[in-house]
C-alpha cells in the first residue's frame, strides 16, 4: 500500500445540520486528512453520519459549515474540479435497471467527459475488472444483487479517478461477492488510487485500511492506524457469551467480576471487555450457571475495532 505523507483530502470543521433548528445534526464539525495512496475507512454504526460526510465531500450536499479540499480544490468553490478528480460509488444502486451494464457505463462515461475510442476502451476495461464482460449486454434488472453492486462500483472507476469514495459497497450481498469486491478495492489501491471506504463491518475496515476513522453521532471518536487504535483499547480481549433471556440486572453482576472493564448486553449476547479474558472466563461461566441461564456458546476475541468501539461508546457497532 503505497501511502505517502501528503494529504490529498483535507476536511475542516465539516458540519451538516439537516432542517435546523430541530432536524438531526448528522455531521458535527469533523476535521481530518486523508493521505494520497491510502485506504481510509470510515467505520460507524447506522446513522453515524458516514453517507452525509461523503455526500458533502462530493458536492451532493452543501455543508452547513466547513469545507473540504480535494486534490487542491475546494468542494464549495470549485465543485466541478473536485468532481473530475473523484469517482463516487454511492451506497444506493445508482444504475438504470432497464439498460445493460454496457449502456450504463457508456452513459456515465460520457458524463465523466469520456468519448470516442477512449470511452469504449475504458468501458471494456471496467467490464473486465468487475468480471461482467460476458453479461455486459443483458439488462441490469436481470442481474444478481452482487452483479448489480459490481456495476455500481464500476461506474465510479470509469474515468480513472485519483480518489474513489465507496459508501458501504458490500451491504446486503453474499460472501463470495463481498470477497470479490474487497479484493478489487485492494487491487485498485495497489494501482495508486486513494480510497475512502465507509462501512459498519469492522472486519472490512480491519482487512482493508491503512487508517481508520471511527464515527459515531456525527463525530470522529477515534482515528489512526489500526495499531494506534488498538493501543487505545489497551490489550483487552472481548468475551462473547451467547445466552438467551438475560435479565438486565445480571449484566451488572458480571461487570463486577474482578478483571472485567465493561459488560454489555446485545440481543442474546453478553459481551465482556477484560484485560485477560482467560482468567475471567471461569468466573463468568459459573455465575451464568448459578443464575440458571442456558449458556449456548462462548467466544474469546483478540483486540478488535469492535472492542474499541465498545470501549469508547459502551455500545456495539451493530445493533
Amino acid at each position: 500500500m503505497p501511502t505517502s505523507a501528503a494529504p490529498i483530502i483535507e476536511i475542516t470543521n465539516l458540519k451538516k445540520h439537516f432542517n435546523p433548528p430541530d432536524g438531526p445534526l448528522a455531521v458535527n464539525k469533523i476535521s481530518m486528512a486523508i493521505m494520497a495512496g491510502e485506504i481510509f475507512s470510515l467505520l460507524g454504526p447506522n446513522g453515524a453520519g458516514k453517507t452525509t460526510t461523503i455526500n458533502m465531500m462530493c458536492g451532493l450536499l452543501t455543508p452547513t459549515e466547513g469545507d473540504v479540499i480535494i486534490a487542491g480544490h475546494s468542494v464549495i468553490k470549485e465543485p466541478l474540479a473536485v468532481k473530475r478528480a473523484l469517482g463516487v460509488v454511492p451506497q444506493e444502486l445508482a444504475i438504470y435497471p432497464t439498460l445493460s451494464a454496457r449502456q450504463n457505463l457508456v452513459f456515465f462515461g460520457k458524463l465523466y467527459g469520456l468519448g470516442g475510442s477512449e470511452l469504449n476502451k475504458r468501458v471494456d476495461e471496467v467490464l473486465e475488472f468487475t468480471g461482467l464482460t460476458e453479461r455486459a449486454k443483458d439488462p441490469i434488472e436481470e442481474y444478481s444483487g452482487g452483479m448489480k453492486r459490481r456495476v455500481n462500483i464500476g461506474i465510479g472507476l470509469l474515468h480513472r479517478p485519483q480518489i474513489v469514495f465507496l459508501d458501504e459497497p458490500t451491504v446486503a450481498i453474499d460472501p463470495q461477492s463481498r470477497r470479490n469486491i474487497l479484493d478489487a478495492v485492494k487491487e485498485l489501491n495497489a494501482q495508486g488510487t486513494t480510497i475512502l471506504y465507509t462501512t459498519h463491518y469492522m472486519e472490512e475496515a480491519q482487512e482493508l485500511s491503512d487508517r481508520v476513522g471511527i464515527i459515531d453521532h456525527g463525530s470522529i471518536i477515534a482515528l489512526g492506524t489500526q495499531d494506534e487504535l488498538m493501543q487505545q483499547v489497551g490489550e483487552q480481549d472481548t468475551l462473547v457469551f451467547c445466552v438467551p433471556d438475560v435479565p438486565d440486572e445480571f449484566i451488572d453482576t458480571l461487570g463486577a467480576i474482578q478483571g472485567v472493564n465493561k459488560a454489555l448486553h446485545v440481543d442474546d449476547e453478553i459481551r465482556l471487555l477484560a484485560k485477560d479474558g482467560r482468567t475471567v472466563l471461569p468466573d463468568a461461566i459459573r455465575l451464568i450457571n448459578e443464575a440458571g441461564l442456558s449458556l449456548q456458546s462462548v467466544e474469546v476475541h483478540e483486540p478488535t475495532l469492535e472492542a474499541l468501539f465498545l470501549h469508547l461508546t459502551g455500545r456495539a457497532l451493530r445493533d
Binding site: C58, L60, P90, E92, A94, L111, I155
Partner: peptide, 14 residues
C-alpha cells in the same frame, strides 16, 4: 429516488 440523479451530480455535470 433511484439515486441516479445524485450519481449524475457527482460527475462533473452541473
Amino acid at each position: 429516488n433511484g439515486w441516479t440523479l445524485q450519481r449524475i451530480i457527482t460527475t462533473p455535470t452541473p
